[in-house]
Structure formats: structure tokens, C-alpha cells
Design a binder for these strands. Structure first.
Lengths: 109, 109
DNA sequence: GGCTCTGCCATAGTCTGACTATGTCAGAGG
DNA sequence: CCTCTGACATAGTCAGACTATGGCAGAGCC
């Protein structure tokens, strides 16, 4: 079915943060990293990941260049731009703001 | 513009939780309550609220009946069903699960 | 009596973005 | 060779939060 786990909008945040931590990664690594760190709660499907990366390229948040993996395969390596780093801080503070607000509503008496 | 504040999916949670706390409310009250408790961070637009309530009626999470407000206006009063209460617990635990996972990714070193 | 304001409900249509399904291609290893 | 897996990509579907708009009824003016 639909609607697996990742709330719409937060995928950008997850990718940006992952790239910020690791400098440079290809798509597959990004997905695996997110999945692993989240203890398999967040599963980034390929059909979500690559379109998101394309959009992020268009928005100018990342750059990409082709390279070769350790296992000798071709892959596109993504890297944050300055705009991407800025976007990350925006998304982070927005995330905290909104999640904090939702939590207040949930926990209100 | 678009994409104001409320992440898709969480509107159900907010409405369910608000109704659970207050027993019975009409739409306007629900929206105002969420907005107030969230310190104006979450603004539930009417064009989001009423469609959401319709969907919740169809899903059987709430019932509605017409009544009159304190200010002598007609309004539809919504109330949680058993299924709605159950859905609330589902959404709550899912929310915590997913937000926890996202937080782990964000805060990972 | 009109007239505006606000409370309150509703819907049609747009748009973002995560999904499913599918396809490709290349190296690894049996 | 032949399958497996890593890795990328896209077309199409769908949920759902938005914009814009409209309607109606009571309150409180003048």
C-alpha cells in the first residue's frame, strides 16, 4: 500500500543532514545510511530517493558528479552546496518549531 | 503560497487528540483550539479542516450532529467514536516512532 | 428596515511529494 | 553464461494540505 513511513517534506531534511555529515555520498549510500541510523524505521525507497535528489539538484541544494564506488561501480556522488547548507538550517529550525508545537497539542491537558 | 505549517498526515492526529481532550466540539472550535495551544504555530485553514473532518467521518473516526453554539449559531458538533480513539493511539505511537527516528538521524554524529 | 461583520460550513481545483512498478546497465561470482 | 546485486532513473498514482470562493445566519450597527 501507500504511505509507508517518511512524512512528506522531511525527506529533504534527512538527505541534507546525511550529506552534511558525510561530505559526499551516492544515492544508495544515503538511503542505507538513513535506514541504518534510524534503526530501520525510515526506509527510503528508490522511487522516493532519486526524484527527491533530482529536485534538490534543480533547487541548487546539491551538486552531483559521476564517479566509481569502492566496489567498482559507477555512481553519482552528491555534495551539499552553500544553498544546501543554508536550507538545512532552515529545515532544522522549522522541524523543531513544528514538532514542538504538535507535541504541545498532543500533551496538553 | 503553499505549504504553510502542518505536515501532511498529522492533521488527523491533531484533530483526534483535540476531540479526545474536549469530548465534543465544532470545527471552528477545533481549529481555534489547535492554533491557541500551539502558540499560533499551527494554523488550521478552513480548506484543510473541513475536508479532513469529512474524511474522518467516512473513515468512521468521528460522528457529527448539528447543534447550536453558545453564540446561537448553527454548527456541527464532532465526537470521537471507539474507532477514532483507537486510531488516536495508533497515530500517537506512530508519530513518536517516526519522529524519534528522524531525530536520531538529525542528531547522529 | 438595510448593511456590514463575523461565525461557521463547504467544495472545486491545484500542487507537492512519497509511493508502486518497471526498466536499464554493469560488475561479481557461481 | 547466467543470475545477483549495486546503482540509477522515470512514468504514473494517490493522499492530503493548500487557495479561492461561496453561502448562510445571527449580532450589532446606523
Amino acid at each position: 500500500m501507500h504511505r509507508n513511513e517518511i512524512p512528506p517534506g522531511t525527506l529533504y531534511l534527512l538527505i541534507l543532514r546525511t550529506l552534511a555529515r558525510s561530505g559526499e555520498m551516492h544515492g544508495y549510500e544515503i538511503a542505507n545510511s538513513i535506514q541504518r541510523i534510524s534503526d530501520d524505521v525510515l526506509q527510503v525507497e528508490e522511487g522516493s530517493l532519486y526524484p527527491a535528489l533530482q529536485r534538490m539538484l534543480i533547487k541548487g541544494w546539491v551538486t552531483a558528479e559521476w564517479g566509481t564506488t569502492a566496489g567498482n561501480r559507477r555512481a553519482r556522488y552528491y555534495k551539499l552546496t552553500a544553498a544546501g547548507r543554508k536550507q538545512l538550517t532552515v529545515e532544522m529550525s522549522q522541524f523543531e518549531r513544528v514538532i514542538g508545537a504538535i507535541t504541545r497539542v498532543i500533551e496538553a491537558v
